[in-house]
């Protein structure tokens, strides 16, 4: 069976580009704090979501709606309404992280398929089976902390489908629990849907060098002609004593393209591309690349050579935790 390519769409145009480029499935979110990419000018209102789902279905693709932030106390109705509207729009599944919201969806919208977001950080078979038995979760998006043998071990112990990230930005090793953005800006992806919100980012050109401040803190400086990273604390360059370097993570993108055969053998159902904040150009290029790879694998042909370096953060790539070669 062909591995499912699950790709991001931040706008209706990106959704159409993804479907055209060969995505089996597109994931997207509403234009509010219910999804973890709540950036200015991004996401779908209800009418756009309905039209996007219809377009995808007309072309044989599915749509997953990410409602993967954690409801604020006293405002749960916003998240409940998002789940209800996703079902009304015809979504094929919702991607949820919060246990309370999973319970609400399972009880109030039992016919709506539920996927467990990476924000839930479910990284072993016991917890995944708990989500399946309690909330009838059909698929889990695995956090980017697992090696390929660990993913195989999980799949051996669960009937829940697994979806893994194969391309795009990397997070620190505690997805759904990271407070770095909150520390610098008061806003976090978990609660507000924004990591390092643009409203708190300041770029300053300093004689060709690029200084980046987040919440007033200088988090990195890149010299002329050096690739720039995203303005997140986890990619910040820090000095301590006589040493200066990237404390949490290097500014690189995940690219597990060459590991697709191993991921298939490990029992993975779906390959996820990160980047709802990216353009339709990115979506089209990355989807084409990965669709060609899974089609080649299915046909027994060698994997084609990818050309995705230019689209990568810092213009550099890594296989991340899949091959644990940490420094």
């Amino acid at each position: 069976m062909v591995m499912e390519i699950v790709c991001p769409a931040g706008t209706p145009a990106a959704l159409r580009a993804a479907v055209k480029a060969g995505a089996h499935t597109v994931y997207c979110g509403f234009n509010d704090e219910t999804n973890a990419r709540n950036f200015p000018g991004l996401n779908f209102d209800r009418a756009e979501m309905r039209a996007g789902v219809a377009f995808a279905h007309d072309h044989g693709a599915k749509v997953l709606v990410a409602i993967n932030t954690f409801p604020r106390a006293g405002s749960e109705a916003i998240w409940h309404r998002a789940v209800a509207d996703a079902e009304t729009c015809g979504a094929d599944a919702v991607i949820l992280a919060d246990i309370g919201l999973l319970d609400y969806a399972a009880c109030s919208h039992p016919g709506l398929r539920r996927h467990l977001s990476v924000q839930a950080a479910a990284a072993n078979a016991d917890v995944i089976n708990f989500y399946a038995e309690t909330f009838d979760v059909k698929r889990v998006v695995l956090p980017r902390v697992l090696s390929v043998p660990e993913i195989a071990a999980i799949n051996a112990e669960t009937e829940v489908e697994t979806e893994v990230f194969v391309f795009g930005g990397l997070c620190v090793m505690a997805e759904g629990r990271c407070s770095l953005s909150s520390y610098a800006t008061g806003l976090s992806p978990n609660m507000n849907g924004v990591c390092s919100p643009a409203s708190h980012v300041e770029y300053q050109n300093d004689q060709g060098a690029l200084n980046t401040r987040l919440g007033g803190y200088l988090i990195h400086r890149v010299e002329r002609n050096q690739p720039a990273p995203y303005p997140t604390l986890c990619k910040g360059c820090f000095s301590a004593g006589e040493k200066t370097g990237h404390l949490f993570e290097d500014p690189v993108s995940l690219n597990a393209e060459r590991l697709i055969p191993q991921l298939q053998k490990a029992g993975v159902t779906a390959l996820k591309i990160e980047g709802r904040q990216r353009s339709k150009s990115y979506v089209a290029q990355v989807v084409r690349n990965f669709r060609a790879a899974v089609d080649a694998l299915e046909a027994g042909r060698p994997l084609p050579e990818g050309m995705l370096a230019r689209l990568s953060e810092g213009q550099a790539m890594t296989t991340g935790a899949y091959k644990k070669t940490w420094r």
């Binding site: 980012v201 890149v222 353009s279 230019r310």
Partner: peptide, 19 residues
């Protein structure tokens, strides 16, 4: 072109209100 890719490569520069 992808805006983020142009930013990474320094072909695009943003100043002022990033949002």
């Amino acid at each position: 072109f992808d805006g983020d890719a142009l930013f990474f490569s320094r072909d695009l520069v943003i100043e002022g209100d990033t949002a």
